[in-house]
């Protein structure tokens, strides 16, 4: 499958994520959109990694491949772990926020102003 398909899918996911962050006001949805962006990047990572493996094995026939095509998957797992940690912190913040202001609307929190 050509690499373009992955890129387009990832870009689409990313844009959806960005749009979501920009237009939604519910903190939980924004949070989910951030995750979506993160995952689109993960997808790209895996796709490029696979692509590089394919190219290098095609160029160096018979010799050992430079990469196995799985290093990126390692990174992705790493990212997912970090993301999980983030989620736990982020959700905790949202819960605190809800407790304090009884809303998950981010526009309610505009104290950065002034």
């Amino acid at each position: 499958m050509p690499i373009q398909y992955y890129i387009i899918l990832a870009a689409a996911l990313f844009c959806i994520g960005v749009t979501g962050v920009l237009i939604r006001r519910n903190a939980i949805i924004i949070f989910m959109c951030v995750e979506l962006m993160l995952n689109s990047v993960n997808l790209l990572l895996v796709a490029f990694s696979k692509m590089h493996y394919a190219i290098s094995s095609a160029n160096n026939k018979g010799t050992a491949a430079i990469t196995t095509g799985t290093d990126a998957q390692l990174f992705v797992f790493f990212i997912m772990v970090v993301a999980a940690a983030e989620v736990s912190v982020g959700l905790a913040i949202i819960v605190m926020m809800y407790r304090n202001v009884h809303s998950t609307d981010v526009n309610f929190l505009n104290r950065l102003k002034n």
Partner: peptide, 11 residues
């Protein structure tokens, strides 16, 4: 411009 809304900053 600095209206305190995170969304604007991201935009």
């Amino acid at each position: 411009v600095q209206n305190g809304k995170v969304g604007t900053y991201i935009l």
